[in-house]
């Protein structure tokens, strides 16, 4: 009977594609998220230039009382935060490699094999990006752009806010992985847990590249 149990237990490991179910599901999820962000980005682009009152993203605007509003988007600052987010993808790759190769030569006891460091670094860079976003949102509000002001404000804050919410969820996910790593140590068997988190994280990064290009860089 014991051998039967062991044998049957093997069944749960067989899958048609050889991939873990969770890996297939995260790809389906990412496909769905593409449509979510496509709808947000399309709305932003459709409403570009349609706002009746300012402030505007790339042009200065003078209100009827003569007050001049600067162009809202601060490309140098956002370039920094974009760089921070891109770097987080790099350390995410290092975190996954550290967990996958735990105990192998070149990883055992080296900086490269320090998964806790790389997971913490990814989460920290993600949090830094969120800090930039908080600064950006606050300064926009001070310059006179809120979610109520005009179509630009509504569509800009909703789009970037949705992205920020995704980054926040990713940071929480990374911190959860980090706490597991601290508590019991992530082994190559757990690589899948890091792998699907990494896929999500890179996806959120790619979305930001699209947003940065379409919203900030193209005038």
């Amino acid at each position: 009977m014991a051998s039967a149990v062991a044998e049957v237990h093997e069944h749960t490991h067989y899958t048609t594609t050889g991939l873990d179910n969770r890996k297939v599901a995260i790809w389906a999820f990412i496909g769905s998220e593409c449509m979510l962000f496509m709808s947000l980005i399309s709305t932003y682009l459709i409403y570009k230039g349609k706002s009746i009152v300012g402030p505007f993203p790339h042009e200065a605007w003078t209100d009827p009382s003569g007050h001049v509003f600067k162009p809202i988007l601060n490309i140098p600052v956002t370039s920094q935060s974009t760089f921070v987010l891109l770097m987080s993808s790099l350390v995410m790759v290092l975190a996954l490699a550290a967990v996958e190769n735990r105990g192998k030569p070149g990883y055992q006891g080296t900086l490269l094999g320090n998964s806790k460091l790389w997971l913490a670094a990814t989460a920290a860079l993600g949090a830094t990006f969120l800090g930039y976003q908080a600064y950006e949102f606050t300064s926009f509000v001070h310059e006179g752009l809120t979610i109520h002001t005009n179509l630009f404000g509504s569509s800009f804050f909703t789009l970037t806010g949705f992205h920020g919410a995704h980054v926040t969820a990713g940071v929480l996910w990374l911190l959860t992985l980090l706490s597991i790593d601290i508590k019991r140590g992530l082994t190559p068997k757990d690589a899948l847990l890091v792998d699907i988190c990494a896929l999500y994280w890179h996806f959120v990064d790619v979305v930001w590249i699209a947003i940065f290009t379409l919203v900030y860089l193209i005038k």
């Binding site: 706002s51 569509s155 909703t158």
Partner: peptide, 8 residues
């Protein structure tokens, strides 16, 4: 203002 016609 997504569906606010007065806002454009």
């Amino acid at each position: 203002n997504f569906y606010e016609i007065a806002a454009g």
